[in-house]
Structures are given as C-alpha cells and as structure tokens.
Amino acid sequence: MYDEASSLFEIDEPALSPNVLAPLPIKTEQIQAIRDAFERAGVEGQDDRKALIESVVLREVSSIRELRAVDVPRILQRIEGLRSSKPASTGSAWDNREEDTWIDKL
C-alpha cells in the first residue's frame, strides 16, 4: 500500500566525500607555544603536562606530535587558566598564608 513510504526509513550509508579533509597536524610553532606556556605556568613534570593535554583533547596522547592544530588553542587556554588562577606571591610565606593563625584571631 505505501511502498514508497517504507523507503523513507531505508537510509543508505552516505559515501565519504573525497573533499573531506583530515585535521591538520600540529605545527612546530604550536609545539613551541605549548612548551613556553607550560614553562610560564610552572608545569614542569611530563606526567602533569600529559594529563592536562589529555583532559583537554579527551583522548590518550603519547606524544605531543599526535596533537592536531585545532587542539592547540584550547590547550593554551587551559594552561593560561592555570597560570591566572595561581595567586601572585608578593612578600613572605607568612604574608601569603591562606588561613588565619591563632595570632590573627586575637
């Protein structure tokens, strides 16, 4: 009765277009920018760097060269966020303490 209507639900797999481009690989300048940002933020350990990058790209990365160019702005933004969230240390450890001591409560 409705043979034409049943064909609406038989969806063929779309053929991949040859014009679809793969994401661009990371550039040497971008690698250096990430390394510089880590240095400015004080993130020195390779495990810490790897964990931060993987938390941004949401996949396992064994080498920085596995990143794509589109990943870099988000990674740099996260690193800069770390840097800006750290309070500037001006003065001594006593001046920069976060909690009140018994002396402060007097």
Rank of each mutant, 00 (worst) to 15 (best):
R59S: 10
L8H: 09
P87N: 08
R49T: 05
K50Q: 08
E10I: 12
L106F: 13
S62F: 09
R40H: 05
P73H: 03
A93K: 06
A88Q: 06
K27M: 09
Y2N: 14
V61F: 02
R49D: 04
S55Q: 11
P25S: 05
Y2C: 09
E54V: 05
D104Q: 09
I31A: 06
I11F: 06
G42I: 06
V72I: 07
S85P: 00
S63V: 05
A51Y: 06
V70W: 14
L76V: 04
I64R: 00
P25G: 04
E60R: 13
D100I: 09
Q32Y: 13
V57H: 02
D71C: 04
Q46W: 11
I103M: 12
S55D: 15
E39N: 13
R83S: 07
D36K: 13
S84A: 12
D3P: 07
N96R: 06
M1I: 13
P14T: 07
P25W: 03
E44G: 07
E99T: 09
R40D: 07
E10K: 15
S85T: 05
S85C: 05
G45L: 15
R97F: 07
A41D: 01
G42Q: 01
L106N: 08
N19S: 13
L8D: 08
S89T: 12
L16P: 01
S7I: 04
E4S: 14
F38R: 00
R35E: 14
K86W: 00
P73L: 05
E10C: 08
R78A: 12
L21I: 10
G91Q: 04
I53H: 00
S62G: 09
D12S: 15
D12Q: 15
A88S: 06
K27G: 04
E60W: 07
Q30G: 05
K86Q: 06
S84F: 04
A5H: 09
T101H: 07
K86D: 01
A33H: 03
R65L: 11
E10N: 14
F9T: 01
G45C: 06
